[in-house]
Design a protein around this nucleic acid. Structure first.
Lengths: 223, 223
DNA sequence: CGCAAAACATTGCGGCAGCATTACGGGAAT
DNA sequence: ATTCCCGTAATGCTGCCGCAATGTTTTGCG
């Protein structure tokens, strides 16, 4: 899962990024609305976390901009302004949820999941692949009801492949599923993850195999 | 917009077709599941309206058949059986929406629009060519849900041809689709790709043929 | 109708880009 | 203090793909 965080308080932003990354969530962060729009054009985010007070304007103005561009990504507004009337204002303008500061990361994640669970989002809640059952929202993998413990990056690779099981996933897609902009990647780290993940899936008899499509990407296939 | 209507009550079917045509929607109609599958292979429908009681069986059985063939077209089930449990049954098996008879055409259209508005349906554009289903965004080619593993350059040629299937594609267009400016090309490399691609399509019984238009370019034709 | 040239088709070959695997070490987490 | 993740890089290997040689079809022209 990949989120865009639009927030000018640097401390909150980094704290949030760290907390989310531990949950396996990749977060891109920007402080400016102008950058934000460009980022949404280059990445398919699962959701956007939007602050209201920003150096270059009221955050809410970003919502119509995005919607007019045909982008339906769910938006959760994060703000200290938490009066009922302001909530209405935010929701009416097209936000999907509204969360007052301060908040618990757990609550934020629950709301993100809730927003992604809505019928207008076709995010599958349960993917069956081979003997595995994968919950892409909670990021857990189970084999015969027994949870399978995977390192974070390998888990992200697996989920990204499982979301399109049986179909090729571009190498670039995998990269954006696992890394954010800050992490530069300058080696075969992704290949290494794939290799280690393969070994783990084999050991666990997961009933799937990861195939390579040379020059294009990878593909998860059931056996 | 083009819909497939699978419905055995002839009066309802014609009434619906007329009503939909006034909204600018083209409707193909069949009464039999057997025909329906063939139709979905020859046309890229925006959505499918499916009755449950049909002369040759329970309509819901069509859904797994279609999904297994790699077809993600949204399906709206139309039926007199409108008990809550039956709705769950329909949705769990992979239907996108469920509408009890009788219904207003307005409501049906609203639901069609809602289903089409879902993100995965907006981004997931597919090209049907012969027995192949091609997703040009993800560079994905499948025959009966089985992914077809093609080398990168041949894949690019196929996608470029499929995007304009039935129409000639200039040789220069193909070249720019496969090569970037850095790669200078000074041989018949493109011809070689075409040749090898032909062989692969033949082996896979893809149901298409690549024709040459002498001095102009190539053309992908369904058989 | 006949011949030649041009355009296209096919196929073997070799270089090398891309992938798989694994060991190593720094660093974060418990 | 120990464990394990994860980025890096070295190594070996597979098979793609550019090239060129050869065969086939089509077009142009007298």
């Amino acid at each position: 899962m990949r989120l865009l965080l639009i927030e000018d308080e640097r401390e909150l932003a980094t704290a949030l990024s760290v907390a989310l990354s531990k949950l396996g969530i990749v977060t891109d962060h920007t402080m400016h609305l102008a950058d934000a729009f460009e980022l949404t054009r280059q990445n398919a985010y699962d959701a956007i976390l939007l602050d209201r007070r920003l150096p270059d304007g009221e955050g809410l103005t970003f919502i119509p901009t995005l919607r007019r561009a045909g982008n339906d990504t769910p938006i959760i507004v994060l703000t200290a302004r938490n009066e009922p009337l302001e909530r209405v204002e935010g929701l009416d303008i097209g936000a999907d949820d509204y969360l007052g500061k301060p908040f618990l990361v757990e609550e934020l994640m629950a709301r993100v999941r809730a927003v992604l669970r809505r019928p207008s989002n076709l995010t599958e809640q349960r993917i069956v692949a081979g003997r595995m059952v994968i919950d892409p929202l909670h990021l857990n993998v189970a084999i015969d009801a027994a949870p399978l413990d995977l390192p974070r990056r390998e888990l992200l690779v697996l989920v990204a492949l499982a979301k399109r099981k049986g179909k090729t996933v571009l190498r670039s897609t995998l990269e954006t599923a696992v890394y954010n902009y800050e992490d530069e990647i300058q080696s075969n780290a992704l290949d290494a993850h794939i290799s280690r993940l393969r070994k783990r899936l084999l050991d666990a008899a997961a009933g799937v195999a990861i195939h390579n499509i040379r020059g294009v990407g990878y593909l998860l296939k059931e056996e």
